[in-house]
Design a protein around this nucleic acid. Structure first.
Length: 624
RNA sequence: GCGCCCUUAGCUCAGUUGGAUAGAGCAACAGCCUUCUAAGCUGUGGGUCGGUGGUUCGAAUCCACCAGGGCGCGCCA
């Protein structure tokens, strides 16, 4: 999850410029978000009681849904938060609010309760009036301008192109993609980006591994162990996925990349070509996997290209000119000194001046850049491209990396560009109640492609979003396919399918034109007054604030939970028709009631689609 | 040793950023349904929110310390 600002210690990031502004006052948000509307009413009332209400107190006034329907639809803390400034008892202010709000449109009843809450019960017509708004908005229902067009770059996946994507990458891909969608919905100007880590030792190792498959393809007499002994660091990436690459290299180059007796030629003569070709092949697969997962990034940035362009060195020079760099010797970590520790002068970035724990090295002893140095250059590039905020979606094992990157972004942008990280914890795959082990070294691991074949894109994406990203997760393959209530993927899809099924049936019995969203937006809705119907409408009304809060918290998983609750409300309504046929949506001899219920059903479908769109999950028309 | 994250019902997890009597699914228990709105429904029980202090009108939520788990800790990315 995104760590709530208050929890980030010891170096809280600068708060988002709009983080404190919870209730946008833009006109479309006002009409869509009923909580914002009522809050405006509460503020007006409060100002009449406390004329000199300070702005910071006003900002703390909230209107929130009530857990217990007996308390009404929503409640405000206005009396309590303003009591001190007003020098009046909360109860007294609350009484004033009650008197004022009781007269307000949309509000059926206001009452003081507890230590100073004001409970508000809305007139059902207030909820009904939301249905045409939803139906006209379509999937854009829940969009807001909270982000105010702030330019955000969300970087995710960003794996070494050293093999097919596997489960470990998958969560970051889904979380990053959904987060980007969510922030776009909240009015941020979002760019989705993939950083290809195609420089450094790992891709050199990849080149050697591909070269081994090439030698095999042309019929070398070397054994794998003989070959491995000649490889700096030994042969890695022994998975079979490089066999086709070797075959293709053999087709393109014949035996030209080997010695005449089909042994290992001097690396200078082949390694660049083999590496570039292999990276290219791996990235093609990655793109296929991403496409199958429904992820489409706007920009792919290459670390190798960045280094080749000299940008990395330019950035280091720039930092040196700004006095951010020095040659120095780091202390060994206290309590755990590496065996081969020896003091060594290094090129260090003064990250401690920007909130990091220790200064961080930018150059290796051989003079080449550390990964961090290149990554700084990459982030500098993103800063130069004009983003106001950079979000990196990372694996939890990169948690220790966040503080230094935040320091670097702060230093490079003069504090103007915000940096955030979203950490994704490990996913354990379960099948038949036992964990599916993965071992990258042995080359046998669960690839993303396998997973997609097994359960499909929608189940993968939805399931990945049923946990806070920062919590470890078990992915139960059997459960993801189960058609039961405890599988949220199914349960939500089924709710949408049921909505569509009702509307199809209505199109048959009435006419297709009569049941379009546009037509239903004009339906007379007075007959919608059953408790289960109101419960569902309340849920629909909560979508804008839910989406907005999830975006500000950087927690896309909240969307999955919202949709599950929404589906639950809908199924409950549906089930009432099982016992009592008069409660079914379609009533032969009561066209007005039927149309009203259809409007509710259609609005439910719209809202589910709006949520699924954020998650990147396809709504289904029918279950099979 | 230090830093970050986590700990909520038997299990898996939510908890609207400090609000009222802490919720859902599964499992358990008790009923109902044998359907054409197939892929169940209704209800019940279940809690020292890891522990102890503190902050205030009010704490699962913020602070301090402690316990347990995960991740990280100079030339891996």
């Amino acid at each position: 999850m995104t760590i709530p600002p208050s929890k980030r210690k010891p170096h809280p990031p600068d708060p988002h410029p709009l983080a404190g502004r919870k209730k946008p006052q833009t006109p479309d948000a006002m009409t869509q978000d009923i909580y914002a509307r009522i809050r405006a009413e509460v503020l007006a009332a409060l100002r009449s009681i406390v004329p000199d209400l300070p702005d910071d107190i006003a900002a703390r006034v909230e209107v929130t849904p009530n857990r217990d329907p007996a308390h009404g639809d929503m409640a405000t803390n206005a009396a309590m938060v303003s009591a001190k400034a007003a020098r009046q008892a909360p109860a007294k202010i609350a009484a004033g609010l009650v008197a004022w709000l009781g007269e307000a449109p949309d509000i059926a009843e206001a009452s003081a309760a507890g230590p100073g809450f004001v409970n508000i019960r809305l007139d059902p017509s207030a909820y009904r009036s939301l249905l045409p708004v939803i139906l006209r908005a379509g999937e854009s229902y829940g969009d807001s301008k909270t982000g105010a067009g702030i330019k955000v770059n969300v970087e995710y996946v960003s794996a070494n192109p050293t093999g097919p994507m596997h489960i470990g990458h998958c969560r970051g891909a889904v979380v990053g993609d959904a987060l980007a969608n969510l922030m776009a919905k909240a009015g941020f100007a979002v760019t989705k980006e993939y950083y290809i880590n195609d420089a450094g030792a790992q891709v050199a190792a990849l080149a050697w591994a591909a070269y081994w498959r090439y030698l095999q393809a042309i019929g070398t007499t070397l054994s794998e162990e003989e070959f491995s002994n000649e490889v700096p660091g030994g042969l890695q990436y022994r998975g079979e996925y490089l066999i086709p690459v070797g075959t293709e290299l053999a087709r393109l180059h014949g035996t030209a990349l080997a010695t005449h007796d089909l042994g290992i030629a001097a690396p200078d003569t082949w390694i660049d070509r083999v590496r570039d070709f292999t990276i290219d092949a791996m990235m093609k697969e990655v793109r296929v996997d991403l496409a199958q997962l429904g992820v489409r990034q706007d920009i792919f940035s290459s670390e190798r290209a960045l280094v080749a362009s000299g940008a990395a060195d330019t950035t280091i020079d720039r930092m040196a000119a700004d006095g951010l760099i020095y040659e120095g010797v780091l202390e060994p970590p206290k309590g755990k000194t590496p065996d081969d520790w020896e003091p060594r002068p290094q090129t260090l970035f003064r990250s401690t001046q920007f909130g990091d724990d220790v200064d961080r090295p930018l150059r290796k002893s051989d003079g080449s850049n550390t990964y961090f140095a290149n990554d700084i250059a990459y982030h500098a590039d993103k800063i130069d491209r004009g983003y106001d905020m950079l979000i990196d979606v990372l694996g939890a094992d990169h948690g220790g990396y966040v503080a230094r990157m935040r320091a670097a972004v702060k230093a490079l942008s003069g504090g103007k560009t915000k940096f955030e990280a979203v950490l994704c914890q490990i996913v354990h795959i379960m099948k038949g109640g036992v964990p599916v082990r993965m071992s990258k070294r042995a080359g046998s691991y669960v690839t993303l492609s396998d997973l997609l074949d097994e359960v499909g894109k929608d189940a993968v994406r939805f399931t990945m979003l049923t946990r806070n990203a920062d919590a470890q997760m078990e992915f139960d393959l059997d459960k993801a396919l189960a058609q039961t209530r405890d599988n949220p993927v199914f349960y939500v899809q089924y709710a949408h399918a049921r909505c569509r099924s009702v509307l199809r049936a209505a199109a048959e019995s009435l006419s297709a034109e009569a049941v379009t969203d546009a037509a239903l937006a004009d339906a007379k809705l007075d007959s919608l007054e059953a408790e289960a119907e109101l419960t569902l409408m309340r849920r629909l009304a909560a979508w804008p604030r839910t989406a907005e809060a999830a975006a500000l918290a950087r927690e896309p998983h909240r969307i999955a939970f919202f949709l599950y609750d929404l589906a639950s409300d809908f199924h409950m309504l549906w089930n009432r028709g099982k016992d009592d046929a008069t409660l079914r949506f379609l009533q032969q001899d009561r066209p007005e009631e039927t149309l009203a219920r259809l409007a509710l059903v259609a609005a439910t479908a719209v809202t589910i689609r709006s949520g699924l769109a954020v998650m990147g999950v396809t709504p289904v028309e029918e279950m099979r």
